[in-house]
Design a protein around this nucleic acid. Structure first.
Lengths: 228, 228
DNA sequence: CCCACATGTAACATTTCTGTCACACGACCT
DNA sequence: AGGTCGTGTGACAGAAATGTTACATGTGGG
């Protein structure tokens, strides 16, 4: 469960602490130090969750939360407030402002991550677990198994994701770049040739059942999974 | 999705109203009027969900919730709090007490049922008190015992819950995060690596009968209980 | 208060996976 | 044929995931 999280925090040390922890948990972190920056970023691309410090230079975190709740585009983005004070009054104001949760500083990274997880779960629909059958190959996300001609095949994690993507996008040719985005993720920085190597490994893994030829090379374009 | 629901409510009229609605929806309702009664019932048989009124004679609903969260046996039972007040303050205390959700009186039956459904959905199905037999292993929730090849095995509490969950969800791969949610509970803040250690302990406990190999590691994904 | 047990973490060991290279091979063009 | 480009292939070192052990803490019972 990875997400794009916008951290609005003016104190560099705390911002860094948070970012490190969130990224360690696999989240993608975008940072800004005040409400203005937050609004600008949000207008550009909606994050999955906002982590807002209560005290900000200029517009306060609570005010920012309220404002985001008022606009249609941003109304549904979960918000977690960070507050240094533990006053009940603040908590009330925070929840009234529309925050989904709040975390009191000092907080443990674990606690922060747990809250984020809980908040995200409330809005995240489950990803598709449906098995895929193509050309005699069967891939089951739930059990994380692949069968070729009835026999189980052994794939590594990346091979599995790659095959899953290809099998759910039959016939179409995917460039290395597209595959990197879809299988590795938007933000990763790896050589395009890496895709070749994994295609090679995947083919090798599919070889025992003879299904390796289902993955076709389209010279100058990329790779494709054939129907038959 | 039907469940055993313990309703802790001192006002007879409201208790009746709730019970009628829940039963109409197919749930089995157990009733009590105070915290003491609730604890007694819980000690006898664990319900699938607790519906607790905020205001109770004697021990308050919040205190009861906290107490249940504190004990190993009852930690994972979902709790929904009923409150007559709409104060945000209550909301906060309720969430801090470990409630999964809360409903403000007066509430519509539809709303109550919706919340119950939502809370129950987070919990995996099939975790009943029925004995489970898989691959020569037998687990009896009622007696809290496990037999491997006919001989009794000795497991710790967490090992038992973990094995129970795995045995009732054969073949499927569970991420560490999912296992934490299902075996430890939603609200617990522990490291994911803790799962590994308990898997290790569980395997060791199953070793005497050779059933330790039934628990498979799926690299990059999590763990699974094999069929055979 | 002491003891046995259970639990969560840290630390270290081991295995597996990944990304890159360097080079081989084959396709395509002139 | 020769040359160029794109892809296949095998090797390898670093990174990541998991196994394993040890330890500190907490808890409940004698």
């Amino acid at each position: 469960m990875t997400a794009n999280i916008l951290v609005v925090e003016d104190e560099p040390a705390i911002q860094e602490l948070i970012a490190v922890n969130l990224e360690h948990a696999g989240h993608h972190v975008i940072r800004t130090r005040d409400a203005e920056g937050a609004l600008q970023i949000v207008n550009h691309a909606l994050p999955d969750l906002l982590l807002i410090d209560w005290m900000l230079p200029g517009t306060s975190g609570v005010a920012l939360a309220k404002q985001l709740r008022h606009e249609e585009r941003t109304r549904q983005i979960p918000i977690i407030l960070l507050t240094a004070r533990s006053s009940e009054q603040d908590k009330i104001q925070g929840l009234e402002a529309g925050a989904d949760d709040y975390v009191t500083k000092p907080f443990s990274p674990r606690e922060l991550l747990a809250r984020i997880k809980a908040v995200l779960r409330r809005r995240a629909p489950e990803m598709t677990d449906e098995p895929v059958d193509v050309g005699g190959l069967r891939l089951e996300p739930a059990t994380r198994r692949v069968f070729g001609a009835g026999k189980p095949l052994q794939l590594g994690p990346t091979e599995f994701r790659l095959l899953h993507f290809l099998m759910t996008h039959i016939e179409r040719v995917h460039s290395r770049s597209q595959l990197l985005d879809q299988v590795w993720g938007d933000h990763v920085f790896v050589e395009e040739r890496t895709v070749d190597v994994h295609i090679r490994r995947l083919r090798k893994s599919l070889e025992p059942s003879g299904h390796d030829r289902l993955i076709e090379t389209v010279r100058g374009a990329g790779y494709r999974f054939a129907r038959v």
